[in-house]
């Protein structure tokens, strides 16, 4: 597992991206992150729900109650228009940052 404090700053964008693809619920997102990174990065649930709270407060995502599993309803998250715009901007910003950092990190 890698140091999570560097990834931490990008968690909002990572989670937004997953919700952007389709509406998802909490556990599904943490599973998806572990799967896609081959368990190299695992998000702590506590962090995940804190991010949900933050994104919802910023109106980048919204939630609704979905289907029933194991006796109780799942809460699904859905990206808003504002969230899409924010994600697009973040991706552009990330590409820029990546290029800049790469100038110094590549070739060694």
């Amino acid at each position: 597992m890698i140091r999570s404090d560097i990834i931490r700053g990008h968690l909002d964008a990572i989670i937004l991206r997953l919700i952007y693809e389709q509406d998802r619920y909490g556990y599904e997102i943490s599973k998806e992150i572990s799967e896609r990174t081959d368990d190299r990065f695992q998000i702590k649930e506590a962090t995940l729900y804190a991010v949900f709270q933050r994104l919802e407060r910023k109106e980048l995502i919204e939630s609704y109650m979905g289907d029933v599993s194991h006796g109780s309803k799942r809460r699904y998250y859905k990206i808003t228009k504002l969230g899409r715009a924010y994600l697009k901007e973040t991706v552009e910003e990330w590409n820029e940052i990546k290029e800049i950092v790469n100038i110094f990190m590549e070739g060694l």
Binding site: G26, Y49, S69, S72, R75
Partner: peptide, 15 residues
């Protein structure tokens, strides 16, 4: 709401 959500998700993880 968040308590309910976390409980539900953790239970699913346990399953």
């Amino acid at each position: 709401a968040i308590q309910e959500e976390i409980t539900q998700n953790l239970e699913e993880k346990v399953f």
